[in-house]
C-alpha cells in the first residue's frame, strides 16, 4: 500500500473513532485526545483536530487532505465509548494494525449495544421508586412512582423514535408523568404528588450532558462547553414546562 492510501485510511479511521465517541456522549477533550493519540501511534506527528458537539474537523498535516464529519444527534451510550476506547488503546499499543482497527470500528458502528428495551424500562421504574426512599418519601408512594417512571421513559423513547425532536418528546414524557402522579394522588394511590413526580422524571434528567459541559469548559473547550450547556438547559426546560402544565391546573 502506498503512502497516500495509508494516510487516507488513517484519516478515515481516526475520524470514525472520533465520530462514534462524540455520538455516544464522550467529553470533547477525550475525543480530541483519543484521535491525536491514535495519530501519533501511526507516526503522524502534526495532526490537528477541531471538535465540537455537532461536527469534527480533522487534518493529518499541512500536505494531507482534511475531512469533516458532522454529528447530527447525540445519545448516552457508555458501552460504545468503552469499546472505541479499547480499540484506540490497542492501536496505540501497536497490538493491532490500522486496517484491523478500522474494521473493528466499523463493526462497533453497526452494532447496537443497548440492553433490551424492557430491561431499560424496568431500570427506569425501579430507579424512580428508589428515589422516594432516598428523599424521605412515603413507602406507599412507591408503586405510583414505579408506574410513572416506567411510562415516562417509554413515552420519551417511543416519541423520540417517531418524531426525532428531543424537546417535544421530553415535554410529552414530563406531561404524562405529571398526569399519572396527579391521578394517583386523586384516587388515593399516592400521598405526595411532588416526590412521585421528581422521582419519575429523574431518568429523563440530562445528568451526563451537564457534567460534560462543565468538564469541557474547565479543559478550555469553550465552544463545546457552551453548546452542551445549551442542550442541557433545553432538556431541563422541556421537562419543567411539561410538569408546569400539570401543576398549573
Amino acid at each position: 500500500m502506498n503512502n497516500e492510501q495509508q494516510y487516507e485510511l488513517a484519516l478515515d479511521c481516526l475520524l470514525l473513532a472520533g465520530q462514534l465517541m462524540m455520538e455516544s456522549g464522550a467529553e470533547t477533550y477525550r475525543v480530541e485526545d483519543t484521535m491525536l493519540r491514535m495519530a501519533r501511534s501511526q507516526n503522524i506527528e502534526d495532526a490537528q483536530s477541531y471538535v465540537t458537539p455537532t461536527g469534527i474537523i480533522l487534518s493529518l498535516g499541512k500536505r494531507q487532505i482534511t475531512k469533516i464529519s458532522s454529528i447530527p444527534a447525540r445519545i448516552t451510550d457508555l458501552h460504545k465509548i468503552a469499546k472505541v476506547n479499547s480499540v484506540s488503546r490497542k492501536l496505540s499499543g501497536q497490538m493491532i494494525t490500522l486496517e484491523e482497527a478500522y474494521e473493528e470500528l466499523k463493526r462497533i458502528q453497526k452494532t447496537n449495544y443497548f440492553l433490551p428495551i424492557h430491561i431499560q424500562l424496568l431500570a427506569a421504574s425501579v430507579a424512580s421508586s428508589c428515589f422516594l426512599v432516598l428523599f424521605n418519601g412515603y413507602w406507599s408512594d412507591m408503586p405510583a412512582a414505579f408506574v410513572a417512571g416506567g411510562v415516562g421513559f417509554a413515552v420519551v423513547t417511543i416519541t423520540q423514535e417517531m418524531t426525532r425532536v428531543k424537546f417535544f418528546s421530553e415535554f410529552l414524557a414530563a406531561l404524562v408523568v405529571g398526569l399519572i402522579a396527579s391521578l394517583a394522588v386523586h384516587f388515593g394511590l399516592g400521598i405526595e404528588m411532588d416526590k412521585i413526580i421528581v422521582g419519575a422524571v429523574m431518568p429523563l434528567v440530562p445528568g451526563l450532558i451537564i457534567t460534560n459541559a462543565v468538564r469541557d469548559l474547565m479543559a478550555g473547550h469553550f465552544t463545546a462547553g457552551i453548546a452542551k450547556g445549551a442542550e442541557a438547559f433545553l432538556t431541563a426546560f422541556a421537562i419543567g414546562a411539561g410538569i408546569a402544565v400539570i401543576v398549573a391546573f
Binding site: 448516552t76 457508555l78 443497548f114 440492553l115 431500570a123 430507579a127 432516598l134 431518568p203
Partner: peptide, 18 residues
C-alpha cells in the same frame, strides 16, 4: 442499599458495560 440500586439502574439506562 437503595442508593446502590438507584445508581445501578442509572448505569443500565446510560448503557454502561454490563
Amino acid at each position: 442499599i437503595f442508593s446502590f440500586i438507584f445508581t445501578a439502574c442509572f448505569g443500565i439506562i446510560f448503557n454502561a458495560p454490563t
